[in-house]
């Protein structure tokens, strides 16, 4: 694999129950709960794509998509 970069945070708003686990454990404070108690990536540029949010989401509601640096969107 070449150098990796973040593509997007895919957050299933129907599946997210607003437990806050992803927000609590994100090492870079990328995520927050919005006023409907759904997770959103408010600072995606700070994401280090460690995927801790994805691996610990009890609702399988968040996916961190990465791509190779030279790949187009």
């Amino acid at each position: 694999m070449g150098k990796l970069k973040l593509k997007e945070h895919l957050i299933g708003r129907n599946w997210c129950k607003g437990c806050g686990i992803c927000v609590h454990f994100c090492p870079k404070s990328v995520l927050e709960l919005d006023d409907e108690d759904k997770a959103v990536a408010v600072r995606p540029e700070d994401c280090i794509y460690c995927k801790l949010c994805e691996l610990r989401c009890p609702d399988l509601a968040i996916e961190v998509k990465i791509q190779k640096e030279d790949e187009n969107e």
């Binding site: 129907n14 599946w15 129950k17 607003g18 437990c19 806050g20 686990i21 691996l55 610990r56 989401c57 009890p58 609702d59 399988l60 509601a61």
Partner: peptide, 13 residues
């Protein structure tokens, strides 16, 4: 889905 477990339930993890 969404599944029946409570918000934050470890069973989903």
């Amino acid at each position: 889905f969404p599944h029946i477990w409570c918000p934050g339930c470890g069973h989903g993890i």
